[in-house]
Simulated assay, not measured.
Amino acid sequence: MNFLPLSRSVIILSVTILTITNLELAYGDTMFNQTQNSTEFIRASCNVTLYPSLCFKSLEHFAHMVDSSSMNLAHAALSVSLVHLDQALVIISRMRFMAMSAGEAGALRDCIDNLADSVDEMQRSMREFRRLGSRAGNMRFQISNIQTWVSAALTDEDTCFDDFGGVDGSITFTVRRMMRKIERLTSNSLALFNKFADDVIQGLIH
């Protein structure tokens, strides 16, 4: 399995941040006020997650994109989670060429397989998100698909973390620390999407 040094997700996120910075320079006070409102919206929304501090820190730079929209916020959270997951897969895959014990080598192989599955599931959720509402009468099914795929991605990340249980070594320490953050980002993104989904379903009912 070959991985590019810099994934497309990382490049897209970098371009997005640069675009936001340029907009701030161009529009000044108006965008500053909008950003303040959106930033507070993000802070309040993050309270539904298990890790609100990490949630806010990871999303505050996307206030212009979020624009006080729960849909935009959920999309941003899923995107951030996928970017970090992509990066982790690249880094952890490179660790295969480092010296390690047999136990670490086995755990690493299993972890890489699980992370590859997790990336695929998160990509599926993002593709479905972009099509959300495009097919009449299918909104609930699409929402369920996204929730299923993100939950599956989180399970695979947990499994990667657990693969190193009882295994000592510097690689074990590095991978488990990295995966703990990835798990929390994915957990937060799922919570924010569930909040958005609840709002959508309530709207469909009423």
Score class of each variant (00 low, 15 high):
M1P: 13
L4N: 12
L6S: 02
L6V: 05
S7G: 01
R8V: 10
S9A: 13
S9G: 08
I11Q: 10
I12C: 03
L13F: 12
T16G: 11
I17W: 08
T19C: 10
I20V: 10
I20W: 03
T21Q: 14
N22F: 14
N22S: 14
N22C: 08
N22M: 13
Y27P: 05
G28L: 08
G28T: 06
D29E: 15
N33D: 10
N33Q: 12
Q34R: 03
Q34P: 01
Q36Y: 08
S38M: 02
T39P: 00
E40M: 08
I42G: 01
R43I: 04
P52V: 00
S53L: 00
L54N: 14
L54G: 14
L54R: 15
F56L: 03
F56I: 00
K57H: 08
S58K: 04
S58E: 03
E60Y: 07
E60F: 05
F62A: 14
A63M: 05
A63D: 08
M65S: 05
V66E: 03
D67T: 08
D67C: 11
S68D: 09
S69R: 04
S70G: 01
M71P: 00
M71C: 04
A76L: 07
A77Q: 04
S79M: 09
V83G: 09
H84C: 04
D86P: 07
L89E: 00
I91N: 02
I91A: 06
S93I: 00
R94S: 11
R96H: 07
F97Y: 14
A99C: 05
A102F: 10
A102Q: 13
G103N: 06
E104F: 07
E104A: 06
A107I: 08
D113A: 13
D113R: 03
N114I: 00
N114H: 03
L115A: 02
L115M: 07
A116E: 15
D117C: 12
V119S: 02
V119H: 04
D120G: 09
E121G: 07
E121H: 13
Q123W: 12
E128W: 10
L132Q: 10
G133Q: 11
S134A: 15
A136G: 09
N138M: 13
M139A: 07
N145L: 13
I146H: 06
I146P: 04
Q147T: 13
T148I: 09
W149V: 06
V150R: 05
A153Y: 11
E157I: 03
C160T: 11
D162I: 10
G166Q: 11
G166C: 12
G166F: 09
D168K: 08
G169E: 11
G169C: 12
I171W: 00
T172V: 05
T174R: 00
R177P: 02
S187F: 02
N188M: 03
N188L: 02
L190C: 02
A191I: 01
L192K: 01
L192W: 01
F196Y: 15
D199P: 01
H206M: 10
